[in-house]
Design a protein around this nucleic acid. Structure first.
Length: 429
RNA sequence: GGAAAGGUGGCAGAGUGGUCGAAUGCGCCGGACUCGAAAUUCGGUAUAGCGGUCUCCGCUAUCGUGGGUUCAAAUCCCACCCUUUCCGCCA
């Protein structure tokens, strides 16, 4: 959520910055609502002040045993007037709030202006794609004989669900364990285990609601009918980790807060029909090791660069070629002020594919969350929040299968994963 | 699932219709005392919004959430959420 003060004071400039990311702010609607809010609020507050003063007088008079009927006559009818005004004010403020909740974050000045993926800027390329002296198979062809089972996944749950068996399942687990160990032992994140099902308020805090409900899975208690409050499956543990500071005022000394968790993520992938339908690139359920940092506003851009490094270290250790991309204004997510993507080399697709996305949300989430710290003046101030994948486990598995495939159909195990695989050097059918 | 208790400021905790935004303690900030610190002592210390003559003043809202009663609600009524304890069920 943007600071409403920024919109009041500098509406045209805010609108221009939003335009850069392809969002057309309804300036007229905002101005009209603000005007209505102002009159409704002053009128309401005047009436409230009048009522409070009279009530106080009544209290004083009664304690002295005086007659209060004169004052009572004065406030007759005030109640109804007040109620009408209060209702109007509440309506206008709710409208303003919902307008505000649907406005994306402002891009940082260092973010390149662009319309789509095509305008993203490559920052660096690391590692050299391996050359193959046999015909490259994609991860589905490599994985299927080793235990990757899309048919059973579809039978159990539908399209975009996968079952893994045997060594593939173990490799998947090894990746997650390894990532979690690196993030906790080498990069200083605190390991968390979080709920996978959350309430609407939590999703409002990180920005998935109210705008993106269609991208989520909702859950209800078995046998429950009707309009009970919906619960949702988390689309990423960014949601739970970041919400740990919702409605908190944390001590400045506690910063930065660095959290990580390995969780499944559930996404309905609405609007992506027809994209990446083959294989496990785009799933309704996938595992991810998430990094979240909650930091002092002054250090959030340093933290962003660090977190990119924390994600890169996993790819380096796995010896997977990748590139770092700075997203343009048009390709960034709703809450991000600046985002780097890490894209891993997939030889069968002959291209780099997103495997991690690391964003600084500045105070955008913190404002929704009311997540604050006490600044040097002792005043509560909004924190900055950052999140990033470190990494997406399913896509890393895809990358390992493709990059480490051998002519005989086996897949060698990256050195750092071997201890997690009981010393296995390769898996084969 | 059943029963009970409870949700008040940064924290602990009093307050059961009226000068209550809320006692007291802790914490924090400033002063005094001290060579300095501790102890002691004095004063200050919520958040958000609106308005103004805008380093300050005034007003409004906020005691889990939402509704209701009333001239007036932390306090009374209703619904919901959450927490704790006990019982039941359960990995």
């Amino acid at each position: 959520m943007l600071d409403i003060q920024a919109l009041r004071n500098d509406l045209d400039q805010v609108a221009a910055r939003l335009q850069a990311r392809g969002y057309a702010l309804d300036i007229a609607a905002f101005n009209r609502l603000e005007q209505e809010r102002k009159t409704a609020q002053t009128q309401t507050q005047d009436l409230q002040a009048k009522r409070n003063a009279s009530s106080k007088q009544i209290g004083i008079a009664k304690s002295k045993g005086e007659d209060v009927s004169a004052i009572l006559a004065e406030v007759a009818g005030l109640g109804e007037q007040l109620k009408a005004n209060e209702t109007r004010l509440a309506d206008v403020q709710a409208e303003l709030q919902s307008l505000l909740l649907n406005v994306p974050n402002l891009p940082h000045s260092s973010v390149p202006v662009g319309k789509s993926e095509a305008d993203n800027v490559e920052v660096r390329k690391v590692g050299t794609p391996r050359s193959f002296d046999f015909e490259i198979k994609d991860h589905t062809d490599v994985g299927t004989p080793l235990g990757l089972d899309f048919d059973t996944g579809a039978k159990l749950s539908g399209a975009r669900f996968t079952l893994m068996r045997g060594q593939i399942a173990r490799l998947h687990r090894a990746l997650a364990q390894y990532m979690l160990d690196v993030q906790t032992e080498q990069h200083g994140y605190t390991e968390c285990y979080t709920p996978y099902i959350v309430n609407a308020e939590t999703l409002l805090g990180t920005g998935q609601l109210p705008k993106f409900e269609a991208d989520l899975f909702a859950a209800k208690k078995g046998g429950q009918e009707g309009e009970s409050e919906a619960l949702y499956l988390i689309p990423t543990s960014e949601v739970t980790l970041t919400n740990t500071v919702r409605d908190e005022i944390v001590a400045a000394e506690a910063l930065p807060i660095k959290l990580t968790a390995h969780t499944p993520c559930f996404r309905s992938e609405a609007g992506s029909y027809g994209r990446d339908t083959k294989g496990m690139i785009r799933q309704h359920q996938f595992d991810k090791v998430e990094m979240v940092q909650i930091v002092h506003p002054e250090s959030s851009y340093d933290a962003l660069e660090q977190m990119v490094g924390h994600a890169e270290n996993i790819l380096k250790a796995l010896e997977l070629p990748y590139r770092v991309v700075l997203l343009c204004t048009g390709d960034m997510g709703f809450g991000a002020a600046k985002t780097y993507d890490l894209e891993v080399w997939l030889p069968a697709q002959d291209t780099y594919r997103e495997i991690s996305s690391i964003s600084n949300c500045e105070a955008f989430q913190a404002r929704r969350l009311q997540a604050r710290f006490r600044n040097a003046q002792g005043k509560p101030e909004l924190l900055h929040t950052l999140n990033g994948s470190g990494l997406a486990v399913g896509r890393t598995l895809v990358a390992v299968l493709e990059n480490y495939q051998q002519a005989d159909g086996s897949v060698t195990i990256p050195t750092v994963l071997q201890p997690y695989m009981g010393g296995l050097l390769a898996i084969c059918a």
